[in-house]
Computed example of a mutant assay.
Amino acid sequence: MNAHPEETRSAAVVVARDEAGQVALLSSRFPRHGGEFLFLPGGRMEPGEDPEMCARRELREEAGVSAASWRPLAAYAITLGATARVHLYLAEGLTLGPPELEPSEAGFALAWWPMAEAIDAAAGGRFLLQGGPLALLLADRTS
């Protein structure tokens, strides 16, 4: 069985950490999955993008944030049968601006959380996707 092309594209997920140690978390309702969940800025790579370009674009679009400093944290396979990878980044030296949300992202809300509270939320099952909690844990180790 062949996977849909969008399902096999690599992606990037970003921990944007400000000078106070707070991280940018997005939230939105996902009725299909039973409620509201937290997530980090991120998404699938567009044609011609490398992972860092994708991370920069997604952070700007979803959170309205640009960063002066970028550090790769890790990358992992989406599934055992796929070659697509999720690339995790830490972004610091932040500049805030307006988000550039797509119509499908209209319900995204940005909030700044202390790292420890974000990790507690991940441990409490408030994240729908696994990339966010892993990226938070790895970013926390770099502080």
Rank of each mutant, 00 (worst) to 15 (best):
L38E: 03
R57N: 12
T8H: 00
V65A: 09
A121G: 06
H4A: 14
T142M: 12
L80Q: 11
M45G: 05
A11V: 01
L101M: 13
L128M: 11
G34R: 08
W70L: 11
G42D: 02
R141N: 06
E49V: 08
D140P: 03
A67F: 08
H33D: 15
I78V: 11
P114F: 01
Q22H: 09
A118W: 02
L101R: 15
L96E: 14
A91W: 03
R32K: 15
I119W: 01
S69L: 15
V14A: 06
L128R: 14
G64W: 08
T8R: 09
T83Q: 13
E117K: 09
A12L: 05
D140V: 00
A111V: 00
E6K: 12
L101A: 12
E61V: 10
V14G: 04
S66P: 04
G93P: 02
A122F: 03
A122E: 13
E105K: 10
A106N: 07
R126E: 13
G43A: 06
L138D: 03
L38V: 01
R44C: 03
G93F: 11
A67G: 06
V65Y: 03
T83W: 04
Q130D: 14
S27M: 07
C54G: 09
A67S: 06
A139D: 04
E102P: 05
A122M: 11
M115R: 01
L80V: 01
G125N: 13
Q22C: 13
F108T: 00
R32V: 11
L40H: 08
P114V: 01
D18R: 04
T83G: 14
H33A: 15
R141Y: 06
A118Q: 02
A135Q: 04
L101G: 12
I78E: 12
P5H: 10
A118L: 02
F39Q: 13
D50T: 12
A121D: 08
L73F: 06
A123N: 15
P51N: 08
G97R: 09
W112D: 01
S27R: 14
P31E: 09
P133L: 07
L101V: 11
A111W: 00
N2A: 15
S27C: 07
R17Y: 07
G93A: 11
L40E: 04
G125V: 14
A63R: 06
A55Y: 02
A121E: 09
R60H: 15
W112M: 08
E49C: 08
R141L: 14
A67Q: 04
E7R: 12
L90P: 03
P103D: 15
M115L: 13
E19N: 03
L90T: 07
G48C: 09
A84E: 07
A16Q: 03
M45I: 02
L101Y: 08
M53L: 12
R71V: 13
E61L: 09
E36Y: 01
F37R: 08
G97C: 10
L138Q: 08
L38K: 03
F108A: 09
L73G: 05
L110E: 05
R32W: 12
A75C: 10
A75G: 05
L59W: 02
G97Y: 10
G35N: 10
L88A: 04
A118M: 00
I119C: 12
R126T: 04
E102Q: 15
A118C: 06
L73I: 05
A75Y: 03
R9P: 01
A12P: 03
H33E: 15
G132Q: 04
A68H: 12
A82T: 09
L110H: 05
G131Y: 00
A16W: 02
F30Y: 15
L128A: 10
S66H: 08
V14Q: 01
